[in-house]
Design a protein around this nucleic acid. Structure first.
Lengths: 197, 197
DNA sequence: CACTACATGTAACTAGTTACATGATTCG
DNA sequence: CGAATCATGTAACTAGTTACATGTAGTG
């Protein structure tokens, strides 16, 4: 369900083809929401049928066309409605936590290594998110610029700060999880009861 | 795939029936991993077929039987192997972040309310996780007690602390997210560029 | 006898993953 | 002309969700 809202969200900034959207959601740009190409095309067609978006066929060369989708009034209303609806708490399903729950069953060296890799991932994710946050604050990202072009300049800072805050949150969560994993590594190092250092 | 490992993990502490496992994963106890009843029974049968667990039929009254599953050698090996394998980074797909990304499109009062509910959920989740962490540290939870009964007493503290740490992580993440949402509420309150207070 | 807990299932669906398939256009 | 990029699809699968269905056993 949310993929539709994610698509509406970016199309609201700028009409795009399925291919453009694939770059956005499938590639490394897939911050916040990720989706493979095979999911995007059928979803776009379903959304067009539902009247949330409208496709406009453009000629690119003699026999190649691309369909550029834009958000309809109905789509905009649906997006606004969804944005205003508190989401129900989704069930926790985190593989790393599940692994950590049973780290007493394996050698602590192996558990340490699993956490080590996790830490690297989380730190990398945090840095990427912080980079994106900064680019948003400096209003350097193409999509944001396009979005802002249709707003009163006095609103630009507030909009940029709101978007940036989402990436700050992504970064903060990743840092928290990395720190948790490091604490886990320290715990793994303690053996038996007396070695309390 | 991970549901199987979650099931192996609790069955390793104590053999259980499908019904028992449903209480564990479907009810409020479904910390760390949640799964509905309709997913658990078929999964158990597939796992038995795969030789990861073995079912033992017990009579409960004249015409009611229950099947108690226990982890086989093969299941234990599979669990240990999975525990030692670093998991690939899973795509981020967080509805609240997706909503927050477009909070500039709705009234800030409504966005504030969405965050308010999110904060309440996260704080509640944090408190529940912290409660469970403390019960684990005091070695009060039934399953942990059962698990520890098959371990050298000198290991008990370390095992309990490792398990508790997972719930500490759950709590820490929830607190971080709640704090992020509160910061978001503050940002929403700022209007236009000059009102920087 | 009614209610709760025990115990196990199935059907239909949505979302997401992995892999394959095809052709057009542009650029060096 | 070959490679990269543009552009759009399909098939087969796994995981997870929602809802329904059925009967037994214990307790007040």
């Amino acid at each position: 369900m949310s993929l539709q809202h994610a698509l509406l969200g970016v199309l609201e900034a700028r009409p795009m083809s399925g291919y453009d959207l694939v770059q956005f959601f499938d590639g490394s740009s897939g911050y916040i929401w990720a989706a493979p190409q095979s999911q995007i095309y059928p979803t776009l067609r379903r959304m067009e049928q539902a009247g949330l978006i409208a496709g406009d066929d453009e000629q690119r060369g003699p026999r190649l066309t691309r369909t550029v989708y834009s958000v309809t009034e109905k789509g905009l209303a649906e997006l606004r409605k969804w944005l205003s609806t508190p989401g129900k708490p989704q069930p926790v399903r985190d593989p790393v936590l599940l692994q950590a729950l049973h780290f007493d069953m394996i050698e602590s060296e192996q558990a340490h290594e699993v956490l080590e890799q996790f830490i690297r991932e989380q730190e990398a994710a945090a840095e990427e998110a912080e980079g994106h946050r900064d680019r948003l604050l400096r209003q350097e990202t193409p999509l944001l610029v396009e979005r802002l072009s249709r707003h009163d300049p006095t609103d630009h800072d507030r909009i940029a700060r709101l978007k940036a805050h989402v990436f700050a949150g992504l970064a903060a969560t990743a840092r928290t999880r990395a720190e948790w994993a490091r604490e886990g590594q320290r715990l793994l190092a303690t053996r038996k009861t007396p070695g309390e250092d």
